[in-house]
């Protein structure tokens, strides 16, 4: 495989913001298949806004995000931050996970056998098959994140975009979720883009780091980041 064929996503000179206020300037990076990119930075640095752009939820003010040939929005799995609506939403785990398959079902109104098998497979993989009939709103935070991860995997195994997947979880569960994400990356070569404010864990699992603070502070391999001035300052602090 040549370098070009392996390239999955490339951003060039992205300027991101709301209305006329720029949040993040001149972001350029490429991702190849199997990469695990962690976007780090302080609160308000523009991490989540960048992720929203990558997930196609908002348009960049300028610049471009190009997906590799043959890859479309339908190949993207996304794990958004939880919304208030979900806290009292009556839905079983199975229903939530299955809804990730919708982008495969084209015009069919109902789920196919393959969809159901796919959902069952990922529920088993994430260890939530035994609670598939329970209500999503009654689960613990860690279980809810597993459900949302299974749903994202149903949507795609090519590219996963995760927006702060461990917010509000206790340290043990946080470690579990990180382990699961790492495992997905390793086993399926799923490309992962994750926002995190926990830089210490980020450098342990990701192979690439994008550090932003209104502009790009660092973009490159994790081992270089750890040695860089900006990385050392941020990890140490």
């Amino acid at each position: 495989m040549t370098q070009k064929e392996k390239k999955l996503l490339s951003c060039s000179h992205l300027n991101i913001g709301y209305e006329n206020q720029t949040v993040l300037e001149d972001v350029s990076f490429d991702l190849t298949r199997g990469d695990y990119l962690c976007v780090v930075g302080e609160n308000g640095a523009g991490k989540s806004t960048l992720i929203k752009c990558l997930a196609g939820l908002m348009k960049p003010m300028s610049g471009s995000i190009a997906l590799a040939k043959g890859l479309s929005r339908r190949d993207v799995g996304y794990l958004p931050q939880q919304t208030a609506i979900q806290r009292d939403f009556p839905a079983s785990v199975r229903e939530v996970v299955l809804s990730g398959c919708l982008n495969n079902s084209r015009l069919l109104p109902f789920y196919t056998k393959e969809d159901k098998a796919r959902a069952a497979k990922f529920m088993a993989e994430l260890g939530i098959d035994d609670i598939s009939e329970r209500s999503y709103r009654e689960l613990s935070g860690g279980q809810q994140q597993r459900v949302l991860l299974a749903r994202a995997l149903c949507a795609s195994r090519k590219l996963l975009i995760l927006d702060e997947p461990v917010t509000g979880l206790d340290p043990i569960v946080t470690a579990e979720i990180y382990e699961i994400i790492k495992e997905i990356n390793r086993r399926h070569h799923t490309t992962i883009i994750m926002v995190s404010h926990d830089v210490k864990t980020a450098v342990k699992s990701a192979n690439r780091i994008l550090h932003v603070k209104n502009t790009v502070q660092f973009c490159g391999k994790t081992e270089d980041y750890v040695k860089s001035a900006v990385g050392r300052a941020f990890i140490g602090g």
Binding site: G56, L57, S99
Partner: peptide, 21 residues
């Protein structure tokens, strides 16, 4: 006919939009 999609959009609109619904 659109039951599943209506569910997805109600439960989590950002996810639905990001995955091409």
């Amino acid at each position: 006919v659109f039951y599943n999609k209506i569910f997805a959009v109600t439960f989590d609109e950002p996810f639905a939009r990001a995955t091409g619904i």
